[in-house]
Design a protein around this nucleic acid. Sequence first.
DNA 1: AATATGATGTAA
DNA 2: TACATCATATTC
Length: 196
Amino acid sequence: MRHILSYSFYEQSTLSLARNLLGKQLVHESNEGHTIGRIVETEAYLGVMDQAAHSFNGRRTKRTEIMFGPPGVIYTYVMHTHCLFNIVTNKIDVPEAVLIRAIEPIEGESLMVKRRGPARRGVTLTNGPGKLTKAMGITLDDYGHYATESPTYIIDGPEPSNISIGKRVGIDNSGEARDYPYRFWITGNKYVSRSR
DNA sequence: AATATGATGTAA
DNA sequence: TACATCATATTC
């Protein structure tokens, strides 16, 4: 219980890690208090081969260079004014990552409501990649930190009963990659984000 | 220095 | 279905 996943957990292939992250719990500590959310939806981004990935074709910029670094490091970036949370995977020089798309609140739900605003109780509190970062208090400040230590880390959790697999969301401009089945979610979980 | 563009959220 | 809104990346 509350066992922090070790560095070696992140050294597996990106597709299996995306699958194995389901059911694990994301923890964030801040001076406002701590929040915990169960990961219920993820997407894999396979670097060089994947047109939808920021690192497609080896593209390396100040933002994406972190994907080329060691696994287990947090990659946050801003999209349409929302912060999105990823974890670098595989090994050094393989620029792949897993996007966390949805969580189910486990602890600190009142703090999540406070951060999201009073009108956001219920599933809409954390059922999307931009929503969960706001609820958890995750920002660009987390960029480059290891997910194996405070203030933002991932702990073990109960195995999910059933897993579903499908196409990723919001990448219609990514050619062939649009239809790759790289999205994973816990079957039937009500916090899974809607498809676009 | 200027502009184009989203791995989205929300309201209508 | 439309649009708000901003950090990055790319272009000028």
